[in-house]
Design a protein around this nucleic acid. Structure first.
Lengths: 336, 336
DNA sequence: GTGAAAGCGCTAACAG
DNA sequence: CTGTTAGCGCTTTCAC
């Protein structure tokens, strides 16, 4: 592969002129600039980002760590972040934590090691996991998306999870449901607790006591959603509706329901958080609370860019408003 | 951030000893090794991959270029490759070509620029796009997955696309369907042409002439699948079954069918290539031809590792056998 | 078994 | 406006 030195020799200029030309510096005469660009394309020269990164102490790499790419929420997030990164001249180093905080820590170290300018992280853990300050190591900028922990000291971009759950449960309540099963996420995660809190708020407002046996806990993955759905179905007094905390567990619940011959929404109403491309194509089309993923991805990215631009202000937190998308998976209890 | 020099000073050894220890060289006494490891953890030292990459002329980065992460096939591929990479000490630099060969070329240059040891590419183009040899630039090793072009001179890992389409169409034929609509992929792609050829083979074997108006072309994305589905429905003499070339277009077709009030499988049988997590949860559960994605990802990865290990043999091509997964979206024509 | 030292390809401060 | 030069942090040959 040709190096800058080769280009300089070929163009009959100094190595500085080549570097300056490639970086778009104004201090190069039009003539030399032309000679350089010509040599560059003739030699098929491509700048070595590794050397550049070493010298500059930072690279054009951006870390992106999600817990599970196969979850459509994260998939879409990856898509949007990738898109913004490309537009801005960054590349994305992708990490998958698989919901494991140790793996996540490894990945963060990796991003630092590759001199990533910043990293967008969907944290897998809860407050205690981050108490050791692992998120603020080194000088790599970090933005937390989706999940967070209070007092983390990191910029965050989240859904307003309380409102989201409240929206879903209130919808069910309005349809006349009183016994609403819950498939919640992992207890240690702030996002799970917030969603549970939103559900409690809706119940409290309706004057309904929360029956603990109606609350099951999964890990945001399909299999446990399936198990939770089954557990709810085998209750002595099963619910008439189920609120599911995320998309993947929703699919699991739908499978459990189908296997048990429970019809939706006739026998059971179902509402979850997270919209996804297949939700409207289901029979019945699924009623969900949608997260504005594109806007959230953009906000996270913009914040990161601000930080990279030198912003050293205190950590900010942005909450995004969820939206109830009514389709056909929830029916009023009389119509069951 | 601490550097190797800092560690050396702290441990009272030379910089060489630190480097050798970190690289697991045998030429370090147990005592010095211990002192080094201790200093490393005390200082929180993390090796700078950028400097390492510059010096070594290659990095622990692996490029992975897919055309669309939101396609579950690619999502799962990303998941598996990522997994293998992690196990082997590599990190994944993700690129999304968005089905654009120019973008793809940019991404390839990017991977080279970051000294990626190798790249796994799901090519977006056809033979003529790669005639300029753009795939063999530099010394970065390349493996093509999913799509390819004959005579590319690159190792490939693909589905046996002819057999896959043949399997799907034969299934429909056996159920008594004669007018089988087709939603094919982009014409310039080899993978599309192969799938079409497989369908032709099945038809020929059954002694059925191919009606050109039954063949529509999409771009492997949902929207065009939707449009193709609609087009097929509005034919003067519509098909009784539809064979769809991939998962995303299948969703589009299902939507079009639902909108038109066409019941599956009662009024229309549907079969596609690509299984995905939601296929069994659909009403009706979808009959598909499954690609062994995990095995394909593994094969691609292994091949890349072989190449990185110095294998300089001629390009190899591996075809994987598809599997028909019969669920409930295809019915015999009499039962319609 | 250990250390010293020469760069990898590039950027940017300094000189002219 | 252009060239020279000193490293960035690391690996690795060559001496000891």
């Amino acid at each position: 592969m040709a190096t800058m030195k080769d280009v300089a020799r070929d163009a009959g200029v100094s190595i500085y002129t080549v570097s300056a030309t490639l970086s778009g510096s104004a201090n190069v005469s039009a003539e030399l600039r032309a000679r350089v660009t010509e040599s560059v394309s003739r030699l098929g020269y491509e700048r070595n980002s590794t050397a550049r990164g070493l010298k500059r102490g930072t690279s054009s790499l951006l870390g992106l760590i999600v817990s599970d790419v196969t979850n459509p929420y994260f998939t879409e997030l990856v898509e949007h972040i990738q898109d913004k990164a490309h537009q801005t001249g960054y590349s994305v180093l992708l990490g998958i934590s698989d919901h494991d905080v140790d793996r996540e820590a490894e990945l963060l170290a990796l991003m630092r090691s590759h001199q990533a300018a910043g990293t967008i992280l969907c944290p897998a853990g809860g407050e205690e996991d981050y108490a050791d300050g692992r998120l603020s190591r080194g000088r790599m900028r970090l933005i937390a998306v989706d999940n967070t922990a209070p007092g983390l000291g990191v910029d965050t971009v989240c859904l307003d999870n309380r409102v989201a759950a409240d929206l879903a449960v209130s919808h069910l309540l309005e349809l006349g449901h009183h016994r609403i099963g819950v498939v919640a996420g992992m207890r240690q995660q702030y996002v799970s607790r917030e969603r549970l809190a939103g559900r409690d708020a809706a119940l409290a407002r309706a004057g309904i006591a929360s029956d603990p046996e109606l609350v099951t806990y999964g890990d945001f993955r399909l299999e446990e959603g399936h198990a939770c759905g089954r557990a709810l179905l085998t209750l002595a007094s099963p619910p008439t509706a189920i609120f599911v905390a995320n998309n993947l567990m929703l699919i699991g619940v739908m499978r459990a329901l189908a296997e048990a011959g429970v019809r939706v929404p006739d026998d059971m109403s179902v509402c979850s958080i997270d919209d996804f491309p297949w939700a409207p194509a289901f029979q019945p089309a699924l009623t969900v609370v949608r997260q504005p993923i594109a806007a959230m991805a953009e906000a996270a990215f913009e914040r990161l860019v601000e930080r990279l631009g030198g912003d050293d202000g205190p950590a900010t937190a942005r909450d995004f408003a969820p939206e109830l998308v009514v389709r056909r998976s929830c029916a009023s209890i009389g119509n069951g």
